[in-house]
Amino acid sequence: MPQQLARLLVVFAVFTGGLVVTRHLLIPKTFGQRGHYRAAAVTTIQVRPLRYAGREACADCHADIVGLHGKGRHQTVSCEVCHGPAAAHTLAPVENQLPAPRKRAYCPLCHGYDPSRPTGFPQIDPVSHNPMKPCITCHNPHQPEPPHVPEECGACHGEIARTKAVSRHALLPCTQCHNTPVQHKVDPRLLHPDKPRNREFCGQCHAKDAPSPREIPRIDLATHGGRYLCWQCHYPHMPEVD
């Protein structure tokens, strides 16, 4: 073997040997036990402290409020949504009092009108809805049924109400087209308002020979729109015409 090669081999052997030994010494103990990671890291993450206790924990002491809350419209809203993380409170209730939001600004986080919110989700206009009054003067947040049945459909159907208000149908009351059972305003999911079912319904105003004011646009029910029902092309709350 040439001298150079022999010397190089010694250098390489020392180097690789050193690397292998240090590697063996330094690899964390639990590495590779369950996969290419430190199994100990999973335990570290698992034992992190809790901040939110979970709604079940509240019932232990606050059975009365939890019971009330469980019957109302806010039953899907966990206690800690409004009262904040409660894990510390469950361990030391007096030292760790939980806040209860009482300001008017809080409720609109969910119930302020926003067109991006799903249609039918109860929304109010924070500017015009009983201005200045804290929400809790009329609504018990644990059972937020309004003190009286809403007069306007817009209390819940804000998006539709707003759209309709600037449309050609602005002056039509909702009940012109929707027969609304009284129960719907008390328990909206129980009974639904109905909707028009045929072209003739719109024809009551828009057919050629309809007994309605002259300025209302007319169409020939027999030929206009062919096979389609009126609302398949026109949105009745904002009837586009073009």
Partner: peptide, 18 residues
């Protein structure tokens, strides 16, 4: 040099081919 001081023509040739 790592102590590899061989300068014979064979060794130098090895350097070149290596």
């Amino acid at each position: 040099t790592l102590g590899a001081t061989d300068l014979s023509s064979k060794a130098v040739r090895f350097d070149q081919s290596a």
